[in-house]
Write a protein that binds this DNA or RNA. Structure first.
Length: 561
RNA sequence: GGCCCCUUAGUCAAACGGUUAAGACGUCGCCCUCUCACGGCGAAGAUAUGGGUUCGAUUCCCGUAGGGGUCACCA
């Protein structure tokens, strides 16, 4: 077989050589030890929560080492591409603090443009580059074409690949596949000419020289030394539309763009043998690989399952909608990525997570389960350390987008709302009431007359007459100018006037001697004023609500008794 | 089904041959307390399993089971 001729027949328009490309993409001028990493999503929809893991790791590795972190859009499958997905993806990642030094960015008029000298960063714009290497492989007898007629191709495209794969008979597949492969390898130049003349499309396949009985050693930075069988599959390099598959694009792009560390999901682990072979065929240096475990969820049988598209919390944007602050999600991810993060954070509570010395060696190999409890805990801690002004601003921004009526109230009464958020804030032991901005409404919505309603009711063991008497007595002595101690002494006095214990210790010593105590009286007031059995400090609440509101609500409650 | 990866409490995880097997979240109890939240103290709760190697195994090796991934002209 004349491979030189074959290469010319297949790629008549390709004039450049790999050597030309090396000149166009010179090695990066970076300090010793600097890592070049990338995030390379395909624009098929939203950013998956699981995608934030490799993205965060890649970002940390690059920026901690003084290297480069870039974004490459892997849009090689036109069928699955969703318009606008790439832009959405960039925006979402930026929201989570994942920012790129180079690569695809949103242009001034929208759309994706390039930034950096190693582009284009959209694979659909790199077809000519891939063809240079494809031609080279053909020339060296390492790749060959397989033709199909247009009708066959249409038929192929019409089938549901996913369903087809599921229905496959794996047990008997092996031999027939091998046979088919050998048949496809045997062809003549004349046949190629004929096919080209009739305009039949072809895919370019790699001529695999591996023996799956033999194992290659491979070192993964998180998983350690692995033994993997050599590749013997003539996998597709170029699809019939001339666009490369992931494998081929990965090799060419990561080589040309100077990627030193490939961070990707563990679903790529079985493909590593293919990549090792491809890099060898192309004469490229193999980058270092890190295969990250998937994030899991629990299915209805209690088994771990990959967090998939449909699942709650799979879409990163869901967290914004649920009212989680991005830094809370990021910090939660850090706790999963490096288990010593929490310890570090306790010692450095004021430092941002980007100051944490992220360490590959501390990464866990097994896939972890998503835990909302932990996220909420992390989140409550972060929010508890924010100022009331910040909380007000964030809650207002969230509510304006997600709960407009509530948002409008927050904007209408900024002072009252901020004061409400200030209760128990600051100091060594701040309250931890909010895990999400969405929690705010339930926590302090009662401050607004527009939202106030009596949600909880009194226990039946309390005589309505007692409650009414207590509320009435309270109104007689209530003075908003009182200090807290004076205020509370008055509550105690109210308790006494209706025969309830004013002193809790005394009450606990002889609970049977009293129908109730001062805590119960406080509860009568609390329900009247906040509509709930639980609320922040009553004194602070009344201070913020003001005399008119307090009295109005207490009177309204008395009318219902 | 083949191949690959994984396996310490409900969850996330320390312990890189010798510990009473850390810690955090969650759960429960007690204390503080005008409720809740916070905080303090405490409790329950784990090395999947069977064999080796070793004076000694959570740790090393082999088998078994379970879980996950993958086997496209998808990434």
């Amino acid at each position: 077989m004349d491979y030189q001729l074959l290469a010319e027949l297949l790629f008549p328009n390709v004039k450049k050589t790999p050597a030309d490309m090396e000149k166009e993409y010179p090695p990066r001028n970076l300090p010793e030890g600097a890592k070049v990493t990338r995030f390379a999503p395909s624009p098929t929809g939203f950013v998956h929560f699981g995608g934030l893991f490799p993205a965060t790791i890649a970002e940390r590795l690059a920026h901690q080492s003084g290297g480069v972190f870039y974004l490459r859009i892997e849009d090689t499958d036109a069928k699955r591409e969703v318009t606008g997905a790439a832009e959405g993806l960039i925006r979402t990642l930026a929201h989570y603090g994942v920012c790129f030094d180079e690569g695809a960015v949103i242009g001034p008029e929208g759309g994706i443009i390039d930034k950096g000298a190693y582009g284009p960063y959209k694979q659909s714009q790199r077809a000519a580059i891939y063809h240079i290497y494809a031609k080279q492989l053909v020339r060296e007898g390492k790749a060959y074409p397989v033709f199909t007629t247009q009708e066959e191709l249409d038929e192929l495209n019409a089938t549901d690949k996913k369903a087809e794969i599921k229905a496959r008979d794996w047990e008997n597949e092996q031999d027939s596949r091998r046979e088919e492969q050998l048949k496809q390898r045997a062809f003549t130049i004349e046949e190629v000419k004929e096919n080209l003349a009739t305009g039949n499309p072809f895919v370019l396949r790699l001529l695999a020289d591996g023996n799956p009985e033999k194992k290659t050693n491979f070192t993964d930075l998180v998983r350690g030394n692995l033994e993997i069988p050599e590749n013997d599959e003539d996998f597709v390099l170029l699809k019939s539309d001339g666009i490369p598959t992931y494998h081929f694009a990965h090799a060419v792009d990561d080589h040309l763009m100077g990627t030193t560390h490939v961070v990707r999901g563990e679903e790529w682990l079985p493909s590593v043998a293919k990549h090792i072979m491809l890099f060898r065929y192309l004469g490229f240096k193999l980058p270092k690989y890190m295969h990250i475990s998937q994030i899991m969820r629990l299915d209805e049988n209690g088994n771990k399952k990959k967090l998939s598209k449909r699942d709650m919390g799979a879409n990163l944007d869901d967290y914004s909608r649920m009212g989680y602050a991005p830094e809370c999600v990021c910090e939660y991810i850090m706790t999963l990525l490096n288990s010593n993060y929490e310890e570090w954070h306790m010692q450095n509570p004021e430092k941002p997570y980007t100051d944490f010395p992220f360490n590959i060696k501390k990464m866990s190999v097994s896939g972890c389960l998503f835990d909302f409890n932990k996220l909420n805990d992390v989140s409550k801690n972060i929010i508890s350390r924010m100022t009331a002004e910040d909380v007000y601003a964030q809650v207002t921004a969230w509510a304006t987008a997600n709960d407009p009526a509530f948002g409008a109230l927050l904007q209408q009464y900024p002072k009252m709302a901020t004061s409400a958020f200030a209760i128990g804030r600051g100091g060594k032991k701040p309250r931890k009431d909010l895990a999400t901005w969405a929690d705010a409404k339930g926590y302090m919505g009662f401050f607004f007359d527009e939202l106030f309603q009596v949600e909880d009711s009194y226990e039946e063991r309390f005589a309505k007459a007692d409650i009414k008497a207590a509320l009435s007595a309270f109104l007689k002595t209530y003075d908003p100018a009182d200090e807290m101690n004076v205020w509370f002494d008055k509550i105690k006095a109210v308790a006494e006037t209706i025969g309830y214990a004013a002193d809790m210790k005394e009450y606990k010593a002889n609970p049977e001697s009293y129908p109730g105590n001062v805590a119960d009286v406080s509860m009568f007031l609390r329900v009247a004023v906040t509509g709930k059995l639980n609320s922040p400090d009553m004194f602070a609440v009344m201070q913020i609500l003001g005399k008119d509101r307090v009295e109005k609500r207490v009177r309204a409650m008395m009318d219902t008794l």
